[in-house]
Nucleic acid binder design. Structure first.
Length: 498
RNA sequence: GGUACCAUGGCCGAGGGGCUAGGCAGAGGUCUGCAAAACCUUGUACGGCGGUUCGAAUCCGUCUGGUACCUCCA
C-alpha cells in the first residue's frame, strides 16, 4: 500500500564557506551534483575511510529520498601524491610498488578491491561515477594549460605552479580555510621544488618526474605527473559541470586541498564552481587523530575480525556504521571499545523491535501517536543531517513497540504501519542500516538440529529437571548461541561477535 | 606562531537563553523455575572565572585543557 508522506523541501546543510547552515537549493533541480574526495588506494581502508563514506552515503540516500536525481562522483586517487619525508619527490604508489615488486596499477587495484569490500560490508552505496585519477590525465593537462593561458600559472624547470600571489590580488585567497596569504608566505618551509617556485604558497599543477619516478605521463612541459589537487578539479568539472552543488570531504582536506581546488576552479571555469562545501570531522583514537603516519590506525578488516590489540572483540560492519551515525558528522568521534559495544547493543535493540512489529496484534483503538516520530525524523534530517536525533526517535519507536508487545499499550493497524514505515524509511533506506540477523540459520540442518536440542531442553524443563535445562543453555551460550524463553516459545540466535 | 574548532552526568552523544534528547553502564521493581529479553522507577550534567539578562549549560569576554590544519593523509 502506498502511504503518502510529506517530504520536506527545507533541507539545511552547513556550508563550510559561509560557516552557516544554509537552505539547500540545487542549481538545476531536480538534479543534484555531488563530488566527494575518495581514497588514495595505497593502503588498507581504515576507520577514517569509513566516516566520509558513510556520512556522504547518508546525504546521497537522503537526497534520493527527497526525489532529487543525484549524480554522485567519488574519485579514486591511483596516481599517488608527492611524499615529503625521507624519499622526497617520490610518488607514494610508485614507492610501494617498488618495495613489493608489483606494477603500480596492481597495487592500486589490490587496495581498491579492499576498499570496495569494506564499503560494501558497511552498506555504503556505490557512487554514480567512481572516477580514477589515472584515467583523467588528459583532462588534467588541459586544465593546467587553461590556467597557464589565463596567466595564473608559470612553468619552471618542467614543472608548472599555480601563482597564488597573483590569484590573491584578483580574487580572495583563503576563503574556505580562513587563511591569509601573508601568514602563509611568512612560514616558508624546506620543500621539494621550493626553489622552483616564485612564492612558497604556490602549489604544483604539474610536476616533472625524477628518473626514479615510475608513474609518469607526457605533457607539453615535461614527462611527469599532475599536481595533488588537480584530479578533483578535472573530474568534478568533467562529470558535474563548471558549477555544481555539493563538494564533500574530510576536514583535513580543507587546506590546502580544497582551497587549491577553489583556485583552480575559479581560473579554469571562470566561475565559483562549488555551491556547498561540506566537511566531515575526524575519527580519533584515544583523543588523537587516527592516521597512517601515526601508526595508530585500525583497518576496517581488523574491526570486522577483531584482530587488533586495541579491540576487545570483533565488530559487525553495521555496528561500525551505527557507531558513526550516532554522532553528528561535524563532531569528532573518539573510538573506544566501550562506545562500540554500547552502539552494538543499541542497534540490536532497534532490530529486535522491528522484528516484533510482525508479531503485534492490532487493536481497534490507539494510545500512541506514531505519526509524530516520522515528522521528527524528517526535521532532524533536514537540520543538517542530524542522524543522532533520528536514532533517538527510532529508540522511542522501539519503546512503543515493546510496550505494545507487553500489552501495556495498544496500537492500531495504522500505528503499526506507521512504525514499519518509520523503520523502513529511516533506519534502512536513509541511515542505510541492514539487519544483522542470520537468516540462513532459520532453515536447513542447523535449524532442525536446534529444534531437537530445544525440544530436549523443553522436556527437561517440563520434568523440572532444571539442572539439565540450564546445562544445555550454558553449553549453547559457550558456542555463541543464545536461548530466550519467551511466552510464545523458545527463541535462539547466534551472537554476532563470536 | 597562524587558522579552524571543541570542552555536556560513570561512558558515548544530541540540544542550545526559561519546557532540560537518546543509547550503554549502575540501582530498585514487574515478569520468569532460574536466566535472557522487555517494561516501569531512579540521574538535574553542561571546564574555571567574569559579564549581558528577570533568567545562561545555551550569548559575550577571558583563562585553562584538547583536537585538526598550516607537510601526503578521510
Amino acid at each position: 500500500m502506498e502511504r503518502k508522506k510529506e517530504k520536506s523541501h527545507i533541507l539545511k546543510i552547513h556550508n563550510t564557506l559561509s560557516h552557516k547552515k544554509e537552505l539547500f537549493e540545487p542549481i538545476n533541480p531536480p538534479f543534484v551534483g555531488m563530488y566527494v574526495c575518495g581514497p588514495t588506494v595505497y593502503g588498507e581502508p581504515h576507520l577514517g575511510h569509513a566516516r566520509p563514506a558513510i556520512v556522504f552515503d547518508l546525504l546521497f540516500r537522503y537526497l534520493k529520498y527527497l526525489d532529487y536525481k543525484v549524480r554522485y562522483v567519488r574519485n579514486i586517487t591511483d596516481v599517488g601524491h608527492l611524499e615529503n619525508d625521507a624519499d622526497e619527490g617520490e610518488d607514494k604508489i610508485a614507492k610501494k610498488a617498488r618495495i613489493e615488486q608489483l606494477e603500480p596499477m596492481e597495487v592500486a587495484q589490490f587496495y581498491l578491491d579492499q576498499y570496495h569490500f569494506a564499503m560494501d560490508a558497511l552498506n555504503v552505496l556505490r557512487p554514480s561515477i567512481e572516477s580514477r585519477a589515472s584515467g583523467h590525465i588528459m583532462e588534467q593537462i588541459d586544465i593546467v594549460q587553461k590556467i597557464l593561458d589565463a596567466g595564473y600559472a608559470y612553468e619552471s624547470n618542467g614543472s608548472v605552479y599555480f601563482d597564488v600571489v597573483k590569484y590573491d590580488k584578483d580574487y580572495h585567497y583563503g576563503i574556505l580555510s580562513g587563511r591569509k596569504l601573508e601568514d602563509l608566505l611568512s612560514s616558508t618551509r624546506e620543500l621539494d621544488g621550493q626553489e622552483e617556485k616564485r612564492n612558497s604558497a604556490d602549489f604544483a599543477l604539474w610536476k616533472k618526474a625524477s628518473p626514479a619516478h615510475i608513474m609518469r605521463w607526457k605533457s607539453p612541459w615535461s614527462e611527469g605527473f599532475p599536481g595533488w589537487h588537480l584530479e578533483c578539479t578535472a573530474m568534478s568539472t568533467k562529470y558535474l559541470g563548471k558549477q555544481f552543488d555539493i563538494h564533500g570531504g574530510g576536514m583535513d582536506l580543507m587546506f590546502p586541498h580544497h582551497e587549491s581546488e577553489i583556485c583552480q576552479n575559479k581560473i579554469a571555469n571562470q566561475t565559483d564552481t562549488v555551491r556547498y562545501w561540506i566537511h566531515n570531522n575526524m575519527v580519533t583514537i584515544n583523543g588523537q587523530k587516527m592516521g597512517k603516519s601515526l601508526g595508530n590506525f585500525i583497518t576496517l578488516n581488523e574491526f570486522f575480525t577483531g584482530n587488533h590489540h586495541l579491540l576487545q572483540q570483533a565488530y559487525h560492519p553495521m555496528t561500525i556504521r551505527f557507531f558513526i551515525l550516532q554522532a553528528h558528522y561535524s563532531s569528532t568521534i573518539d573510538f573506544s571499545n566501550e562506545a562500540l559495544i554500547a552502539a552494538e547493543k543499541g542497534m540490536k535493540k532497534l532490530f529486535s523491535a522491528y522484528d516484533l512489529l510482525d508479531k503485534l496484534k492490532p487493536s481497534s483503538s490507539s494510545t500512541e501517536n506514531t505519526g509524530i516520530l516520522y515528522q521528527n525524523c524528517l526535521h532532524a534530517m533536514d537540520d543538517d543531517l542530524n542522524s543522532p536525533i533520528v536514532i533517538a526517535n527510532l529508540f522511542e519507536a522501539s519503546r512503543i513497540i515493546n510496550q505494545a508487545n507487553d500489552g501495556k499499550t495498544s496500537l492500531t493497524q495504522e500505528n503499526i504501519n506507521d512504525l514499519r514505515d518509520l523503520f523502513n524509511v529511516f533506519l534502512f533506506d536513509i541511515l542505510g542500516m541492514k539487519p544483522t540477523a542470520n537468516d540462513s540459520m532459520t532453515d536447513g540442518l542447523d535449524n532442525e538440529l536446534m529444534h531437537v536440542i530445544i525440544e530436549l531442553r523443553q522436556k527437561a524443563k517440563k520434568d523440572k529437571d532444571y539442572t539439565t535445562a540450564d546445562t544445555i543453555r550454558d553449553m549453547l551460550t559457550q558456542i555463541g548461541i543464545t536461548l530466550k524463553d519467551t511466552k510464545d516459545g523458545v527463541e535462539w540466535s547466534i551472537s554476532q561477535t563470536k
